[in-house]
Amino acid sequence: MYEKDISRTDPGCIVFLLDRSDSMQERWGNTQETMAEGAARVLNEILLDACLRSQGEPGRARHYFDIGIFGYGIRPIAGGEGVESAFGGVLAGIPLVPLPDLRDSPVAVREYPSPDRGAPPSRVPVWVEPVHGGRTPMCEAIAVAGAHVYDWVTAHPDSFPPIIINITDGMVTDNPYQGATLDQWAERLTGIQTSDGPPLLFNIFLSPASGGGVLFPASSRGLPAPGPDLFRISSPLPPLMCANASHTGTEVKAGARGFGFNADARMLVSFLEIGTRVDLRD
């Protein structure tokens, strides 16, 4: 399991579930950012990294991944509370976007001063804007993502399994949803299979407080709520991602899960880098 490389013939799929509930407006640790701003910034960096990896030949990108981002909480496009694609602009409403289309369609390109004196400003594409409001319908988010993952797996039965990463700061507020609990929605999602294994569901819980975070624990012992619940629904970290972690100096013990708790911005970056890095073949 989890041995397939990503290629244009057998592309991968990465789905982000982004908590957009009201509590995401809190300051993130000692930074000047809210958690909504920080999570959007880190997500945009990871999307840029994926686009950079796909930019092979001049003038075109390679279709290595289909990317989905589902915001849950406030719905800025449809209105009200619930789940919707977090993409804006021409990508609004599209559940899974091929990487070449993502590359071509940021909602904005912002300029930031370069840290190198005299260098031109750094131009940063933006695909996801920070939004917060409403409650935390995490079960619905997993249900919506699961439906799209099912369709994707049907179309790509021999690909590396989809990776679903849930970024949240809150307690789930819709458990049970349509008669099924959070655990059951997670089981349904990870019950779908490609020939290379079931989807990977990773969860990272952000904390407005600084310090005390853990990445990829092998046990939930001692973690306060909702740590044990999120740990339980998180997939074991496959060997290739354990190797990713060791390359970046992150210690991972046997039995580690794709889970982070009380994460700051630096930990979120590490979590996403380790959890989304799969070898590309062509």
Binding site: L48, C51, L52, Q55, P58, G59, R60, A61, R103, D104, P106, V109, R123, V124, P125
Partner: peptide
């Protein structure tokens, strides 16, 4: 190399990677 790039992603790929 090209004087103008097709996208900001390509521009950054050339410069940073």
């Amino acid at each position: 190399s090209p004087a103008v790039f097709d996208s900001v992603v390509e521009e950054r790929k050339f410069a940073e990677v």
